[in-house]
Amino acid sequence: MLQLLINGLIAGSLAALIAGGLALVYGILGVFNLALGQMVLIGGYTTWWLHQVMGVSLFLSILGGMGTGALLSWGVFAVFIVPFYKRHRFLPLVTTIALGMILDGLILLAFQESPRSIITEGKMPIRFMGTYLNLPQMIMIMLTVLLLCLFAWVMHGTAFGRRLRAVVQHDYAAMSLGIRAPVLHRLIFIASGVLAACGGIFIGVDMNLSPTLAFPLTIKAYAAVIAGGKGNVWGAIFCAYAISLLEQLVVGVHWFGTLYIPAGFQSTVALLVIILFLLLRPQGLFSSTTRAA
């Protein structure tokens, strides 16, 4: 059981990184980005290419991966989001489907379908309280917690964070107080792209990068955002951990001593979460209220 909890923590750390940024974007712009999974993979693949092919040090490769995530999300925001979301907030849903196809094609052209791992050595499992996990996994869990703490400090302890939260609550009211909302929109989208790239690096370090991972990653992140309450960053992060743990428990436990659920159904947990929450509690677990006059 403890091993399942550890596995849930590892998978949850990855999902939390992606879902946190996504929740922020959804809270402010109200747009769905269906190319998120591909943006995650681009960050991971760039790091793999820099480290394994070009021979750059791991630290610089990770910085390169995050930089690529930032550049990509800046470009995506300028081309696939801005010209559309002011006309109709559903348009980016279709444009990001197109972007997802383009990025899928580019990933296949550049990196082929073979699995790619950023780190190939030093993954010997360590025994810890009766469970097994390796050093990169421990570091990744701690780094995720650190990153989320930094994120919390920026959001709640700085003037910049207060401006961000003001824009999340009410765009136009924030602008009337002199906050440059369009600039913050761009910055938030870029921040979400960097977090997505971190997720890709996490996958590349812990497991293998594969083009088929993109869409399941997007779906899991959306499940967390919907369950956490649309736009509620901390709700999404909490639910990302909860969904990952549930995924581990569903296929890892012999229910009632006899019932065994095949591993193939693991990915349906996120889908079930989406369906059940949209049907029974569409506002999510931690719905945030919008202030109105």
């Binding site: 010209p83 559309f84 109709h88 559903f90």
Partner: peptide, 24 residues
Amino acid sequence: GPVRLILFGLILFVAVWIRRDSLF
């Protein structure tokens, strides 16, 4: 396969761009 994906993605994007005022 990859070229088909890129081509169709571009077609979809251009189609949405052209119809951005009438799609929704």
